[in-house]
Nucleic acid binder design. Structure first.
Ligand SMILES: [Mn+2]
Ligand SMILES: [Mn+2]
Ligand SMILES: [Mn+2]
Ligand SMILES: [Mn+2]
Lengths: 218, 218
DNA sequence: TGATTTTTTTAGATAAGTCTAAATTTATTA
DNA sequence: TAATAAATTTAGACTTATCTAAAAAAATCA
């Protein structure tokens, strides 16, 4: 079995490698885990010994197939717990992530499969991220940030790129949550702010920065 | 915050002091936690420093009010998770304890209060043990082992004194589970074996050892 | 009571995970 | 390409929790 710490490293490497694509740097892992580069190097050696990552000094790291399987399983647990917390315990979408950071380390596979069944096999977590199935298969829908939509186009909010509670609370206040249809009414020349019309006729203005972090299907 | 290890020590001391009453010995803690006496001594010093236990060298330990509050909170979490696992995820009563040993360390009080509400404030866990409320109040029903019942008396199974999976599986096979009414049909002179009649007319024979570990109300 | 056994504590090691400071390697840029 | 800057690794130290072996205290009993 892997320790909580090892699991957190593997998960971070996984997330960094899906966004960054290439091999992951020591410093980026340190930043993600809020730790120091020296600590990361120590852990990378250990994970390499366990054949969970490919690591050559100064070269960055990537996950092995086994390491990726471990990481995806933690992501699966994280997202299923998030769904449970929101759906059954009625937490808000900005509250579930922190709690899931603990729950994702509960080890039992039987438990998570039963939770999956109890929740009726949800496909997406409260932030729109896909939940891997028990075989580690994970959907990859093509989502676009609102910032690339042209004036007068429409989209449905399906995810976010940023999970900070403050950001999620802000979106909730604007009623910009998963499943909501938006219509790009205007884009301000000066700073690229986006004016959205919602189905309920409300109109909200968001900065380009915010628009980049909201994902939609067209 | 206390570490998992500290929480496990406090919980063990709590359980040992409710069954044994007086102050708890180093060796009994070591036995309960499957560790060595030397390790226990080290931890006792730390817990005493944190004012969670009363400890004087060679004198055994007892919980302070604060230590007891921490312990009871862990027991609350343990039993609520056990109830969830059985009620919602349909685990068997011999499977839930091990899983709850992990879940009891999830820290959020908000989470456990919401879980409590979701489960509709259960009073007892799957083994008949009372679930402390959020203020740490815990019911203490007077339960008697079947072994003290005279011939021809009746009782309702309300708990067990032994939580080992093998024991619980054995009881389940005999249909001796929580809520079942039993009638003491006979007690064998030779070895004090107890012959029970159930409501469904079935008759089962259990050893005195087993009879001691099944608790009933009359 | 005095000797023996049991219990508990101390001493000293080990392993995991973290840190700071220094050294080394790689990347940048003049 | 040589100097400088940035990234990474190493060295050495610290904390937590654990262990074995030895010492000390308490309990038992002849
Ligand atoms: Mn999350
Ligand atoms: Mn999420
Ligand atoms: Mn239990
Ligand atoms: Mn129980």
């Amino acid at each position: 079995m892997n320790s909580f710490t090892e699991e957190n490293y593997l998960k971070s490497i996984y997330h960094l490698s899906v966004t960054d694509d290439e091999s992951v740097s020591t410093n980026s892992i340190a930043a993600a885990l809020n730790t120091k580069a020296a600590s990361v190097t120590d852990m990378l050696k250990k994970l390499a010994d366990k054949k969970l990552i490919n690591y050559a000094k100064y070269q960055g790291v990537s996950l092995t197939d086994e390491g990726r399987a471990v990481a995806i399983n933690i992501v699966r647990k994280h997202r299923l717990w998030e769904f449970f917390l929101m759906e059954k315990l009625h937490f808000k979408w900005d509250e579930v992530h922190e709690l899931a950071e603990e729950l994702e380390h509960i080890s039992s596979a039987e438990l998570i499969d039963r939770l999956d069944r109890f929740l009726e096999y949800p496909k997406y977590d409260p932030h729109g991220d896909p939940i891997p199935d028990r075989n580690g298969c994970i959907k990859t829908d093509e989502l676009k940030p609102i910032s690339v939509l042209p004036i007068n186009s429409r989209g449905t909010i399906m995810g976010v790129r940023e999970h900070a509670p403050a950001f999620l609370q802000y979106l909730a206040k604007l009623q910009l949550t998963i499943g909501i249809q938006v219509h790009v009414a205007d884009i301000i020349d000066y700073d690229q702010s986006v004016i959205l019309k919602l189905n309920n006729k409300n109109s909200v203005t968001i900065s380009r920065e915010v628009a980049k972090n909201i994902l939609v299907t067209i």
